[in-house]
C-alpha cells in the first residue's frame, strides 16, 4: 500500500461530494461568479485584430506529453475556433502528438458547426508536425506572419521559441500552462497568460454548466482545506507535534 493512500481516498471522496453538491446547487440557483480572466479578453482581441489585418492566428499545445492540460486547452481551443469561425479568420494549429490530431479536428469542427460556418473550415490548417514541431512552428508563424499566437498546454522551452517568432510580427500572445518552470518566461513575454488552475476555471467562465461549476467549486473548497491544513501543520510541527504529518501519511 502506498503512503498516504487513505487520506488521498478521503480527499477524492470529499472532492466528488462537493462536486455533485455544487453542481446541483448551481442547477437550482444559476449563480456563479468568477473574476474575469484577462487572457480570454486578449484572445478575442487577438482574433479581432487578425480579422482586421486579414492574417491568421496560430495555436499550439507545446511539446509536452498528453495530460489534463490538453483537456483544458480543448475548451479554450473551442472558444478561439468559434471566434475565428464567426469572424472568418484562419486558425493554424501546430501539433506535436499524433493522438491529439483527431481530437483537435473534432473540437474545431464542432465550433464551426455551431457557428454555421462548416463550409469555411480549412481542414489542412490542423497540422501534425511530430518531432519537427518547433522548427515547423517557427516557420509557420514566420511565413504566415500571424497576428495572434496562442499556446496552451504542457509547455517547455518551445514556448520561448514561439514567443520570439510571433513577437517579430507584433502578434498578440496568450499562453497558459501549469508547468511552473515556464510560467516566468511566458509571463514576461506574453500579453496575457493563464496560470495553472486558471486554464480549467476559464472553461467554467466561458460556459458555466453544473459540471464545470461543480468542478471549480470542489477545487476551490479543497484549496481552502489544504491551506488550513498547511497552517495547522506548520504550527504543530513548530510546537514539536508531528501527529498531523503521521495522519496524512497513513
Amino acid at each position: 500500500m502506498n503512503a498516504g493512500v487513505t487520506v488521498s481516498f478521503i480527499v477524492f471522496a470529499l472532492f466528488v461530494g462537493v462536486f455533485y453538491y455544487s453542481g446541483a446547487r448551481f442547477k437550482q440557483t444559476g449563480k456563479f461568479s468568477a473574476r474575469k480572466f484577462e487572457a480570454l479578453g486578449k484572445m478575442e482581441e487577438a482574433i479581432g485584430r487578425a480579422t482586421e489585418m486579414g492574417k491568421p492566428v496560430h495555436w499550439s499545445y507545446g511539446m509536452g506529453a498528453f495530460d489534463a492540460q490538453y483537456l483544458a486547452a480543448f475548451v479554450l481551443l473551442e472558444y478561439a475556433a468559434s471566434l475565428c469561425a464567426k469572424y472568418d479568420t484562419r486558425m493554424i494549429v501546430s501539433i506535436a502528438l499524433p493522438e491529439v490530431v483527431p481530437m483537435t479536428e473534432e473540437v474545431i469542427r464542432k465550433a464551426y458547426i455551431e457557428q454555421g460556418k462548416l463550409d469555411t473550415l480549412h481542414t489542412e490548417d490542423v497540422r501534425f508536425w511530430g518531432g519537427s514541431h518547433n522548427p515547423a512552428m517557427i516557420g509557420t508563424i514566420s511565413r504566415e506572419q500571424v497576428a495572434g499566437n496562442f499556446m496552451i498546454g504542457s509547455l517547455f522551452h518551445e514556448s520561448i521559441l514561439s514567443i520570439e517568432a510571433a513577437a517579430r510580427y507584433n502578434a498578440i500572445q496568450v499562453m497558459g500552462t501549469q508547468n511552473t518552470h515556464q510560467l516566468p518566461f511566458i509571463a514576461a513575454g506574453c500579453d496575457a497568460i493563464f496560470i495553472g488552475a486558471e486554464m480549467f476555471a476559464a472553461a467554467a467562465q466561458l460556459e458555466p454548466t453544473p459540471v464545470r461549476v461543480g468542478s471549480v467549486w470542489a477545487a476551490d473548497v479543497l484549496n481552502v482545506v489544504f491551506v488550513g491544513l498547511m497552517i495547522i501543520g506548520a504550527l504543530l510541527v513548530t510546537a514539536g507535534n508531528t501527529s498531523l504529518k503521521t495522519l496524512i501519511l497513513k
Binding site: D67, Q69, L71, M103, G196, A197, F200, V216, A219
Partner: peptide, 29 residues
Amino acid sequence: VTIGAALSVVGNAFRVITGLERGHLGGGE
C-alpha cells in the same frame, strides 16, 4: 500553482472519466 492546478486536474479528469465532459470527442456535456 501546483496544488491549485492539481486539484483542477482531478476535477477535469473526473469529468472526462465519467463522461460528463465530452468536448474532446466533439460533443459537449
